[in-house]
Design a protein around this nucleic acid. Sequence first.
DNA 1: GCATGAGCTTGACATAGGTCAAGGCCGGGA
DNA 2: TCCCGGCCTTGACCTATGTCAAGCTCATGC
Lengths: 226, 226
Amino acid sequence: MGHLHVPLLNKITLFEGLPAATLARIAEAAGVQRFSNHGFLFREGEEPDFVYSFLEGGIVLVSGAEGHEAVIEFYGPGESVLLPAAILGMPYLLSARASSDGQALLVPASKLRALMNEDAALAARCARVLSQNWRALITQIKEIKTHGATARLAHFLISQADRSKGPATLVLPGMKKEVAQRLGIKPETFSRTLKKLRAFGVECDGDAIRIASMERLTALVDTLPA
Amino acid sequence: MGHLHVPLLNKITLFEGLPAATLARIAEAAGVQRFSNHGFLFREGEEPDFVYSFLEGGIVLVSGAEGHEAVIEFYGPGESVLLPAAILGMPYLLSARASSDGQALLVPASKLRALMNEDAALAARCARVLSQNWRALITQIKEIKTHGATARLAHFLISQADRSKGPATLVLPGMKKEVAQRLGIKPETFSRTLKKLRAFGVECDGDAIRIASMERLTALVDTLPA
DNA sequence: GCATGAGCTTGACATAGGTCAAGGCCGGGA
DNA sequence: TCCCGGCCTTGACCTATGTCAAGCTCATGC
């Protein structure tokens, strides 16, 4: 846990807009950790020692036994994970596996909890970030409960695309297998569904996707039954 | 928005353990609203004017068009809903429909936001409650992605039961139709699955359920394939 | 350069769960 | 009291998605 430059903290959404004094106190206690692709940063059931925020690279949150796991969500640069476990001091519900090489900023959970109780700005910031996380999960649950595989995949592609009109591109945030499980379907179904979308202007080369027309894809979603 | 007794606030988990001064300021701005069964307290897309906390009775959070809706979760006395929308000042992602007559405590969203920025105890409390909400949703997503209808129903019954050993009872927190959708299945499937569980000591009379042996039901879950 | 294996695709087939349609049951209103 | 309309159950049938089993392709290490 070295001496850290405050500017690093500015890359993290969680710490956005906090007063300099607060940032300084966080920086004091924080450290940086490198991680490499496919490695686990932490596992389900462990006690939360840190909040992880990503400076570079990303991870995928998974749960369950290897080979039979559910993928919850992908996280990348600027984002933080497992704030809830750290705040409550309860065991992680999920494991994090790196989906690329990268580095994370680690803030000790105990330090964060202590600061939150004194510093309204920090606590309020945490509440806002948690609120956004909550909304993201709600969106995912609605999606799973109301749409079939095709619509889910289409929505996902739309949400990841770099533009919202005309042609767009994106690169999948993890292995196809992982994206499939994020969507709640099997890799085989993912593959077949993606193929179906070719008829609607979705081309795929490795983990890069090209969407010929966002409008066309959006229109497709409305057409779909479930 | 009348003059309110602070003791009412003590019934709400969200406000647990807050200093008297904070409670007084919240009470000042809060009001009570009665609602009756099947009525909507608010609808998806509306601007968040209040945080709702339930003193009596409960609601079900739903989304989507009537007749084609997804049920997200049930909430009852002591619990609060839509803190995230209120904190962020963004439109509700969900609608709330009463699942019984009751009354709710309403705290203006603007007031809550203002207080949070000054009062670390309140902000930290919000963060903790949001953290718990987050974990509940994660549990639900894991459940949907990794278990079939039978296991999901069994888990749900276990989570609602009044005891964790031996025989137990529970009453469903809403119409069977709603519980089904909460579990991500259709009412017909719910009915059939519940019937299957009869072979494992689950009896059902209206919305009251009797579980002959929690151990037996727990054991069943492990047996199940998906 | 070749063998190896992970990740992906494809096909044939199986099945959980959805859909459609008919009652049964029960409670509220005339 | 009877009728009507929700809600739930049941049965027959259908389909989206999962399962199993080859292949294919590409990167890696020998």
